[in-house]
Design a binder for these strands. Structure first.
Lengths: 301, 301
DNA sequence: TGCGCCCATAACCTTCGCTTATTGCCTTTG
DNA sequence: CAAAGGCAATAAGCGAAGGTTATGGGCGCA
């Protein structure tokens, strides 16, 4: 059974005769006749009785017709989709991002991107960094947006912007009066932050604390900075996390710069062993534009 | 685009390589390779990038895959249906019936039939007798159940049961007190009945009235006896119609035998120019059983 | 460096789907 | 009643699709 046989069977049922079906399909009458016979011999039963030189659908034909018609329409719809793709009218952008990026940059970047490419579908996978890396390697996503560089043989990364670490606390916290927070300020407070084994940033923070003569004693260890929100709100401590998330947007929280400055990097990574989607460069431009806009806005408030 | 191309595309996506797809489809690797290339060239875009000798799905492939998979499954389901039909596991019984038959015998007969053939689908066409005849001749129905014999060259009919004519009136009609109704009783009443030109029964009734010295003056002429229900209820007259319909079931109506007895025939007709569907005999048995049951029930109430 | 895996190509064959030309059956019509 | 017209089937032939086996080349890995 193939698509052509279905199409021809459907046309004969609809038009009532081989000749009429041949006309509406714009082929010769013998062509239709032969395909029909072939179809019948494959099925093992007649679809039409030949009575007085005319075709009369059998019980079997009536049983098949509804489903055949529906399936054929589905095939037509699929052909349409294939054509639409060929005309570049639809596209697909598969993004892997860690939670802090999703909750900060991404909406703005997608807004800009979709303004210029409204026809592109987006698959967004918000996952822990390790999973993002895995998805990138197996090709389930076109690129990754994370807060630390992905290290793998075929992965190419570009750093988009530095992100200073910040201290996040309740608005009624004594530390909220300070304009910046040092390791000493945090010395006797329960600390909510990345673990020492968290790639890049963990050891770096340990180092900074050590140079100030303070041990970084992480009371509650995070895999994603967003997890800090309810903890800080609930009074479980002060969080030392990335400054990418707009912490001030969350009720009752304030964020203060951490001193000395410690930077994380927003980076975008592609897998060079995979085809780059045509929409990667446009998206990259969107996100860079967004970062420029924000920088400008900060310089000239 | 055809079914085979979809099947092969789907298998490559699922299995991850041309070789694996060829294995699971039980064909040679070059066969799959060639169909894929052909498919891509028809589509006008690549579905896979060839990176270090491996196939990597492109954005376009991801866009197509979900729909292609679904459509292919539908085709498989259709093939299954075709096979099931070939194995005689499903069937179809296309019945044409006039309204009085539909509203009386049919439900009971179908109930019996489906008890023994639950796998057979039924298409029921309730139509005026002339249309039933036409559908039978063009083969749109397998047989016809009507209240008068169909006369046509290739049509073979069997009479199932006689049906006496009855007079139908409101329960508060003076005639309701009688045990049977004669032409004289109806002489001065507006009559709701079949026209004189209605085959068989029209002239026969005219004849009976004439022999009683009464002219049969039809006040409202029916094509189907069921149309009499609202008319009699509304007080527009007395109906002289078939006794097949259970008139007493309709609120406020009663039926009385007409004397002298005039019989119509329930007949079942097939078109001998077509082979009979294999479910005709079983259905015939069902309806005869039903008629026997009813007869027995009447004799021994 | 050699082996194994994977994809592409070549050469060849059969089947499918199409064409035009023609035949035969049946119905319609003058 | 015979001629005309409509419809399906068949014949002969052609190109493309889809299958085979054999072979070659790129890449990763021991």
């Amino acid at each position: 059974m193939n698509a052509r046989q279905l199409e021809i069977f459907r046309a004969i049922m609809r038009d009532g005769s081989v000749t009429a079906a041949a006309n509406s399909l714009a082929v010769s009458q013998p062509a239709v006749s032969k395909v029909l016979h072939h179809f019948e011999s494959q099925l093992g039963y007649q679809l039409f009785e030949r009575i007085s030189g005319r075709l009369v659908p059998t019980m079997e034909a009536h049983l098949l017709y509804d489903d055949a018609d529906r399936v054929f329409r589905e095939i037509e719809a699929l052909k349409n989709l294939a054509r639409t793709i060929a005309e570049r009218k639809v596209g697909l952008l598969r993004i892997g991002a860690s939670a802090p990026v999703t909750y900060s940059l991404l909406a703005g970047a997608l807004l800009k991107f979709r303004a210029e490419h409204p026809q592109v579908k987006v698959h967004l996978h918000t996952l822990p960094k390790a999973d993002v890396e895995e998805q990138l390697l197996i090709g389930e996503i076109d690129f990754a947006l994370t807060l630390s560089t992905i290290q793998a043989p075929t992965v190419r990364s570009e750093i988009l912007a530095p992100v200073p670490m910040m201290a996040v606390m309740r608005h009624d916290d004594p530390l909220a009066d300070k304009t910046e927070i040092t390791p000493h300020d945090l010395a006797d407070r329960p600390l909510i932050s990345y673990g020492s084994t968290t790639a890049d940033i963990g050891p770096e923070l340990d180092n900074v604390f050590e140079q100030s003569g303070v041990k970084r004693d992480v009371s509650i260890q995070l895999s994603s900075s967003l997890g800090a929100i309810p903890l800080v709100s609930g009074g479980l401590g002060v969080a030392l996390v990335d400054g990418l998330v707009k912490w001030g947007n969350f009720e009752g929280l304030v964020a203060r710069p951490f001193s000395p400055t410690v930077l994380m990097d927003i980076s975008i990574s592609t897998n060079s062993a995979r085809p780059v989607t045509r929409f990667f460069r446009p998206f990259l431009k969107s996100i860079k534009d967004l970062l420029n806009d924000e920088e400008t806005a900060q310089v000239q408030p």
